[in-house]
Write a protein that binds this DNA or RNA. Structure first.
Length: 777
DNA sequence: GAGCACTGC
């Protein structure tokens, strides 16, 4: 064990960059002495008039974002402004802010100051101190003069909370609302709450929000925070988004599928709405209220956004971030787990107090490193500071993740082992040291010409933007250090940004949604267009589902499908449930499948007892009916007075290793789906009682492409509509069973191609599915 | 025999 503490071989060690007497195996590429470059005019710089070059900053030597990043200048990391939002409240009353974070999962900004509120005048004073405040007038002038503005704001600049207010104060949105779009729900709701406090108004009046399942706005709402998925839905009923005068697309650098679709649509909407009125005052758009677009981003791709919007102005706002000293290894590391462990104990031995955050690609690595660190920490001399490890990943049992927000006991150093969840979604207080393995897992959709396709989930090297984001996590509360387990050359060779999501995921549902707006994904103008293979695959799937006809025209089935907030396959299942008289059961199942958290928890140490407890719910036909059994048992608790209490329900969930959060979310989705059904004239109370067959038949309709037949080897299955050979995922209740034919929710390639969410069906079911027979004929 | 992170009138 002792050998693990041995550092990299001595002769390879570079000279220590630090004043410590002990040499460290790190090359310091940060440059504390380099004067911090100050952009022009009060923290705000703008590219030259008419200049296409991004951000005069990079040419006039005033220090721009791309330049800063290449020099790894501390304090100039480009963190997602998700973090930046903490800044205003943090400045005002950091104490309460910390409290609000405790125990909250994901909702790190929830309830910040909302009830407590600072004094109004005090809040206004603090607003004036934000970095962006110095550039307010210049910024407003740019927005007034241009239809599109790209705003590059560093962490802590205050852009997301302030810019909408400036626009309101400056009277730039007198004819309509200001929309601020966010990729995440919690961000939208908590930002609205914060800004509402800053305006000294009640949430839902001047400032409101709109996210799935939750909405607070009224006729007097002028600033509305909403998720990008929500505004895409609004596009269905209001194709020109005419109620908004200004649309601010925040976190655009994340390049989510919905953000990209929105940006594409905004460009063409603006073209229509801002058309000049002709001489007779009868221009086609003369009655339309012109639209201003502001794209807010936190990274290096300003040029791309600017180019897409015909050379739009780029405005840069400095942020507030403590300096982070960055170290790279002198040599590449073969075993990043071992390197991470050595580095952790090196930090633990040599550095002062402060928690350590280690970025790892996935749960498996986290569990393994967690064990090693604990084992080794137990052998440390008594007088050493103790080590408390906190694993953190999304699939972890609820409650486990919140442990990370509690302060460590005295004389204890917290070591947080996290996936990318700690990169943008959660901010952990107390972190001073970051260890970055340089790895992450990324989903990538592989389209197949057969129409379907599958996701791969493989470990990859991260991007520059991600590396900077990770490093920035060490500088949230004070100066910090980041130890990268890769060389500086490796860093320099990293791609600047991740591939946008539009090139990485199935486009089936998006193609359908766009068809409903009368748009063709192949004709839209994108910053990065989708792969042709993915488009073809999506069109083929939609055709098989009956959503499109042979001419790729939307069918009435397709229009009905699009009205459901569901993946296209599940929407088809709901429609099919009418024919089989099992809408009630299907809605119950589909709501759980659509929930963001997994229903069945899997805790490594308790795997056997979990399997035992789950046996009670297990249905022989497979996972879909097992889900139904779980939902029904859970719902039945409420009708029994003895188990109707909140805590009884929770206990029941714990006993069965079920994630109650998934069930609660599923209930919201269920309610929403019932509403959609009644609008569509579907009777959602029709039930097939105890019969299983109708349910499986309805499922088979939507999952036509996701079907496979047992191979002669008796262990694997061959797709009916593709060439892949797949295995049933070990988490399935059918994992060790042999059945002649299966349908499944999805395929994921990790070590092999696994089918997840599997049910056994009779081969004869395929005969009832028109698309399948057509193809076989 | 195994699960990066988000999201939807």
């Amino acid at each position: 064990m002792g050998k693990h503490l041995r550092l990299l071989s001595h002769k390879n060690r570079p000279k220590s960059p630090q004043k410590h007497s002990k040499p460290a195996p790190w090359v310091d590429v940060s440059d504390d002495e380099r004067p911090r470059k100050i952009p022009r005019t009060g923290g705000l710089s703008v590219n030259g008039q008419g200049s296409r070059k991004v951000n005069g900053v990079s040419t006039n030597g005033h220090g721009g974002p791309s330049k800063a990043s290449e020099h790894h200048s501390p304090g100039n990391f480009h963190n997602s402004s998700m973090n930046g939002r903490h800044s205003p409240s943090g400045d005002i009353n950091g104490h309460r802010r910390k409290k609000a974070r405790r125990g909250s999962l994901g909702a790190t900004q929830e309830n910040i100051d909302v009830q407590s509120g600072g004094k109004f005048s005090e809040i206004q004073e603090q607003r004036k101190l934000l970095p962006i405040a110095q550039g307010k007038d210049a910024l407003l002038e740019e927005i007034r003069r241009n239809d599109v503005t790209i705003l590059l704001g560093e962490t802590g600049s205050g852009k997301t909370t302030q810019v909408p207010q400036y626009i309101l104060e400056g009277g730039l949105a007198d004819k309509g609302m200001i929309a601020v779009t966010q990729p995440r729900r919690v961000a939208a709701t908590s930002l609205a709450a914060r800004v509402s406090v800053e305006r000294n108004t009640k949430l839902g009046h001047l400032v409101g929000y709109s996210v799935r399942f939750d909405e607070k706005n009224g006729s007097d709402t002028r600033i509305k925070y909403l998720t990008d998925g929500m505004i895409m839905r609004e596009l269905m009923s209001d194709p020109l988004l005419s109620k908004y005068s200004v649309i601010i697309v925040d976190e655009a650098h994340e390049r989510t599928l919905r953000t990209d679709l929105l940006i594409s649509n905004l460009k063409s909407i603006q073209k229509t709405r801002n058309q000049p009125v002709d001489a007779k005052g009868k221009g086609p758009a003369s009655h339309l209220n012109p639209l201003k677009i502001i794209v807010m981003s936190a990274t290096l791709d300003a040029e791309k956004f600017s180019k897409f919007f015909a050379g739009a102005k780029v405005v840069y706002v400095k942020g507030r971030q403590h300096p982070v000293k960055i170290f790279h290894t002198a040599e590449g590391q073969n075993d990043y787990l071992e390197a991470a462990m050595r580095t952790f104990f090196q930090v633990h031995n040599d550095q002062g107090p402060g928690d350590v955050l280690i970025f790892l690609p996935g749960q498996e690595d986290i569990e393994s490193l967690n064990k090693s660190i604990q084992l080794f920490a137990n052998q440390l001399p008594q007088e050493r500071m103790e080590v408390l490890t906190c694993p953190m990943y999304a699939a972890q049992a609820p409650g486990q993740n919140s442990k990370v927000f509690l302060a460590a006991p005295t004389n204890t150093r917290k070591c947080i082992l996290a996936t990318n969840i700690a990169e943008t979604s959660l901010t952990i207080p107390g972190v001073k040291y970051v260890i970055d393995t340089g790895k992450c897992k990324e989903k990538q959709y592989l389209a197949r010409d057969s129409g379907g396709g599958f996701d791969t989930l493989l470990t990859k090297d991260i991007t520059k933007s991600s590396a900077n984001q990770r490093a920035g996590r060490a500088g949230r509360e004070g100066s910090g250090m980041c130890f990268r387990l890769y060389t500086e050359d490796a860093y320099n060779a990293m791609p600047p940004m991740a591939e946008p999501e539009i090139r990485r995921c199935s486009l089936t549902s998006s193609v359908l949604q766009l068809k409903c707006f009368g748009q063709d994904i192949q004709e839209l103008e994108f910053m990065d267009g989708p792969d042709l293979d993915s488009v073809i695959s999506a069109l083929k799937t939609l055709y098989l589902l009956g959503a499109l006809d042979k001419q790729k025209q939307l069918t009435s089935t397709g229009r009905d499908m699009a009205s459901f907030p569901l993946e296209a396959t599940y929407a088809r299942v709901v429609l099919a449930s009418r024919e089989y008289g099992c809408t009630r059961e299907i809605l119950e199942i589909v709501s759980v499948l659509s929930a963001s958290s997994k229903l069945f928890q899997d805790i490594a140490e308790q795997r056997d007892s979990a399997a035992e407890a789950r046996r009670a719910l297990r249905h022989p036909s497979g996972d879909h009916l097992t889900v139904l059994a779980a939902v029904r048992s859970y719902t039945a608790l409420s009708s029994n007075p003895e188990t109707a209490t909140r805590s009884a329900r929770r206990q029941w969930c714990d006993r069965h290793y079920l994630n109650e959060r998934a069930l609660l979310e599923a209930r919201d989705i269920y309610t929403q789906l019932r509403q959609t059904c009644s609008r569509q004239g579907i009777d959602c109370n029709v039930s097939c009682g105890e019969r299983d067959e109708p349910i499986l038949k309805a499922l088979a309709h939507g999952l036509v492409q996701n079907s496979a037949l047992l191979q002669p080897d008796g262990a694997s299955y061959k797709q009916t509509m593709g060439r892949s050979v797949v295995k049933i995922h070990p988490s399935s209740v059918l994992a060790d069973k042999k059945v002649p034919a299966i349908i499944y929710n999805e395929l994921v390639y990790t070590n092999q191609i696994y089918a997840r969410g599997v049910s056994s069906i009779s081969k004869s079911f395929f005969n009832t599915i028109p698309a399948l027979n057509q193809r076989q004929a």
